[in-house]
Design a protein around this nucleic acid. Structure first.
Lengths: 342, 342
DNA sequence: CCCAAAATTCAAAGCGCTTTGGATTTCCTT
DNA sequence: AAGGAAATCCAAAGCGCTTTGAATTTTGGG
């Protein structure tokens, strides 16, 4: 069943039927109802390829998945994608997922856009002075950045969480609890969010004339293993930290293991705050000692970004260009007063 | 730059250029080279929407993501998707990702196929007597199942791992090591792979006249938390198991925590074998006590399935309809002889 | 050197939808 | 009841590609 058949069935022209379906005003209410009824009865579905060809819109949003053969995939990506999907499906949008080596990002993005098979691009894993932004601005294809770059003007559409603020708040709480020796288990150092989180911690410490020692900062992929190793290294220091911040609950997982192994008690010997992306796989409240966290749902961010991207493509509504989400600081049992100095 | 312009530039007809590009035999080698050169120079890219319309192929494979709003997403899904993506991108295939409540699966699949926007469907999270299979067989759209159902003839295309065999092998090793009391921390009981894994264990035990007690089997979503709870419950039993099998390294994570908390030593007090989907986030060799595993790469399965699906759509090559992958049993430190009875 | 067969190339007809530019009706106002 | 605006509806022209059916050029054997 196609448009032609449907219109013949109704004794109308394709034009009218098409307009009735797409909500154009110049069609009689009664006629429209007739068309809608026929659609329901026949189960007619417009052919997307034809629609795309006719409108010039691809009906899909492109994303570069930094996970080419041999490169580890990231749990956080899957969760974010679920959010994108929740929203995209409502508008019958596809994804064109393009795996790429992190180093080919710029070229991959350009190719994806040039292919004409995407209406918009989604950018993530922002770095300092990320070259993709200038590149995308030079093209006319809409895009949104998840996160923000650093060191270049922020006159591009983005959605980010207040990383600096989150880690400032977390560190501040710990200073108020009397902690003096801090450590940070962070994401990769080339990613902008890592830089901001570190800055947040440094700022909070500075207010108490404290500093974050270099040997108390670890940058790595956010996996269980790296969390464990980093924490173990910290605990072997001359003066080990009593307050530790983690950029992910996945990292915290490893960190907790190292702490337990060292025979220390979380919440008394050592306090821990992690950033929680609300991964269903790993809930901070279910840790042996429930984790104090800075929380912001990655999935919600995905939904919102898809919403904005699609709105821009279809020019439905005008949504804000810049969004900076505050995180919630949720106190659980993993934070407590600093242990007495010995 | 479109086909028309390109062909004018070359002084050829659209027909010839199109054929040259699509590898048809009836075109002069020299002419073809000229076309290819021109493509390189001009950066011409065929419009996918037009191709799709003309060929009637959608250029995309559909998948239902069992993760509608409010339902937890599954880590394993992301890893599998990465595999699909690795392969799909080579042929410029999209995904149409359709979130759905697990209960709507059948309807969602049907709708996805009826929309005509996918050339093939991918089915996963198989259940016993899964109704989706009969439904898909009644349609003409190609599909592949990841996993296998139970209780219905297996005359449909699938790729599965030998779950029964994997858990049989694992349990057998443990019996050989002298273990007598077993436990199984499994996936959801309505999923076919869980049923098979359990069967594998039961079979191995039967050979030594051992049984798997009901209170020593746990079925749940494969998250850290459930692993922890299940293990904790087992350890509180009158006669706790000395050999435990886990359906995922994610579950093992929680299980290990419970064991540590109970003050027991892995590999001596209690032996543990987990199934390893090769999630980059969580490597069994990096556990505090490296984990003995049954291994099969989920990502590789994704790649293979995409390959088969695409081959079938394009009718490139004939790949086997049924594949049953053996798993590797990799022995590490988490398994050891059964402790002496006290 | 001629002619049929093989090798190349081409013109044109769709694929199913949107949209432009008009045509036709209907509705008001005077 | 006439005239013009508003409301509806329609025919036809694409969108850019593939493919059918036929035309044209080459090639090879007699």
């Amino acid at each position: 069943m196609n448009l032609k058949q449907l219109s013949q069935l109704l004794g109308l022209s394709q034009t009218t039927v098409s307009r009735a379906l797409n909500g154009y005003p110049e069609v009689n209410a009664e006629t429209r109802q007739r068309v809608l009824d026929a659609v329901r009865d026949t189960g007619y579905r417009p052919n997307r390829a034809a629609q795309r060809l006719a409108t010039g819109r691809a009906g899909s949003i492109g994303l570069v998945m930094p996970t080419a053969d041999g490169i580890e995939s990231d749990v956080h990506f899957g969760e974010f994608l679920a959010g994108l999907g929740d929203e995209a499906v409502k508008h019958d949008f596809h994804f064109v997922i393009n795996p790429s080596h992190p180093e080919d990002e710029v070229a991959t993005c350009r190719r994806l856009v040039a292919s004409g098979n995407v209406d918009a691009l989604f950018l993530a894993y922002m770095r300092e002075k990320d070259p993709r932004i200038a590149m995308m601005k030079s093209l006319k294809t809409p895009f949104i950045v998840h996160g923000r770059s650093i060191g270049i003007p922020d006159d591009y559409p983005y959605l980010d969480i207040d990383n600096t603020g989150a880690f400032y708040d977390a560190a501040r709480l710990l200073t108020q609890l009397g902690h003096r020796r801090f450590a940070l288990i962070n994401g990769p150092d080339y990613l902008a969010f890592s830089v901001r989180r570190r800055k947040g911690v440094v700022r909070a410490l500075a207010e108490h004339d404290l500093t974050l020692r270099d040997e108390c900062v670890n940058h790595a992929q956010m996996t269980d293993e790296h969390g464990f190793r980093a924490m173990r290294a910290f605990l072997r220091l001359e003066a080990p930290p009593t307050a530790v911040l983690c950029s992910s609950t996945v990292l915290a997982l490893g960190a907790v293991r190292a702490i337990n192994q060292a025979g220390l008690k979380i919440g008394s010997d050592i306090s821990l705050i992690a950033h929680d992306d609300v991964l269903p796989m790993l809930k901070p409240e279910n840790f042996m000692v429930p984790l104090t966290t800075t929380r912001s749902s990655l999935r919600a961010a995905g939904q919102r970004i898809a919403r904005r991207l699609i709105a821009q493509i279809l020019q439905l509504e005008t949504l804000p260009q810049h969004e900076l989400w505050k995180t919630d600081l949720i106190v659980r049992a993993s934070t407590g007063p600093a242990p007495a100095e010995r």
